[in-house]
Amino acid sequence: MLEWIADPGAWAALVTLTVMEVVLGIDNIVFISVLVSRLPAEQAKRARQIGLSLALIFRIVLLMFLTWLIGLTDPLFTVFGKAVSWRDVILAAGGLFLLYKAVHEIHAEIEHDPEAVTKASAGTAFAFVIFQVIIIDIVFSVDSIITAIGMAENIEIMVLAVIIAVAVMYVASGPVSHFITEHPTTKMLALAFLLLIGVALVADGMGFHIPRGYIYFAMAFAAGVEVVNVLASKKRKRRQVGLVTAEGSDRPMQETGQ
C-alpha cells in the first residue's frame, strides 16, 4: 500500500502535484480573503478555517470518485458544433458567480454607503459567507482535481498532495486576509483579481483555455507594485509624523528664547 515511499518518481510526482495544487489554490485564497474581510476578526478567522476545511473535504471526496469525475469531461450536449461537458458548465457558472461577486463588492466599496454596509454585514451573516465559500470551493475543487488527474497514478499521493497544499493555503490565508483588510487599495486589487479569474473560468467553460501562467504572472506583478506602493505610503506617513514632531519640539525652544 505504501510501496510508493521508496519510489523517487513518486516523490517527484508528489512535489509537482503539491506545487500545482498550491498555485491553483491562489484563486481560492483570494476569494475567501475578500469574502471574510467584512466579518469581525473572530468570525473571519472561523470562516477561513471552515472554508479551507471544506476545500480539503471536497478535494478528497472528489478523489474518491475519480471515475465519476473523469466522466464530467464527457460531452453532455452540443452548442454551435462545440461539445459541452459538466465540467464546462461548472466552470462557466463558477466564473459568472465570481464576476457577479467581484462587481457587487467593487460597487459597495466605491459607493461607501454606510447603510448598505450595515445591512450587508448584518444579513451576511456567517452562514451566508460560508454558503458562498462552499459554492466557489466546489468550482475550484473540480478544476483542481481534474487538472491533477494523470500527474500521479497513486491515489495516496494525490490525497497527500491535497492535504499539504490546503495546509499551505491555510497558513497563507491569514496574512493575506489581514493585509487586504488593512489596506483598502489592496482589497480593490484583489477584487480585480477575482474579475480576472472569473473571466478565465468562463473562457475555460466555453472552450477557450487561457494559460494560468499569464494570469498568475499578471497577479504577481500587480501585487508586487501594490506592495511597493504600501511601503512608500508608510514611509511618507513616518516622514510626516517626524516633521510634525520636529516642529512641535522647536516651538518650546523658540518660546523660551523669546
Rank of each mutant, 00 (worst) to 15 (best):
S177R: 07
S177D: 04
F179Y: 15
F179R: 01
F179S: 02
I180W: 06
T181V: 13
T181N: 03
T181W: 10
T181I: 12
E182N: 11
E182A: 14
P184F: 06
T185W: 05
T185L: 06
K187M: 14
M188E: 12
L189D: 03
L189K: 03
A192F: 13
F193R: 09
F193Y: 09
L194M: 11
L194C: 04
L194S: 03
L195C: 10
L195Q: 05
L196R: 01
L196S: 05
I197L: 11
G198A: 08
V199M: 09
A200H: 08
A200M: 07
L201V: 05
L201I: 09
G205H: 08
G205E: 10
G205N: 08
G207T: 09
F208W: 14
H209G: 01
H209M: 07
H209W: 13
H209L: 09
I210G: 00
I210T: 04
R212S: 09
R212L: 04
R212K: 13
G213R: 10
I215R: 01
F217E: 05
F217T: 15
A218I: 15
A218W: 08
A218F: 15
M219G: 01
M219H: 04
M219F: 15
M219A: 09
M219N: 02
A220C: 05
A222N: 03
A222T: 14
G224W: 14
G224R: 01
V225R: 02
V225Q: 03
E226I: 10
V227Q: 06
N229M: 12
N229A: 13
N229L: 14
V230K: 02
L231I: 14
L231Y: 10
S233Q: 14
K235H: 06
K235D: 07
K235L: 10
R238H: 14
R238E: 10
R239V: 14
V241C: 00
V241L: 10
G242C: 01
V244C: 00
T245K: 05
E247G: 02
G248C: 10
G248M: 15
S249R: 14
S249F: 11
S249W: 12
R251A: 12
P252C: 08
P252L: 13
P252G: 05
M253C: 01
Q254K: 14
Q254A: 11
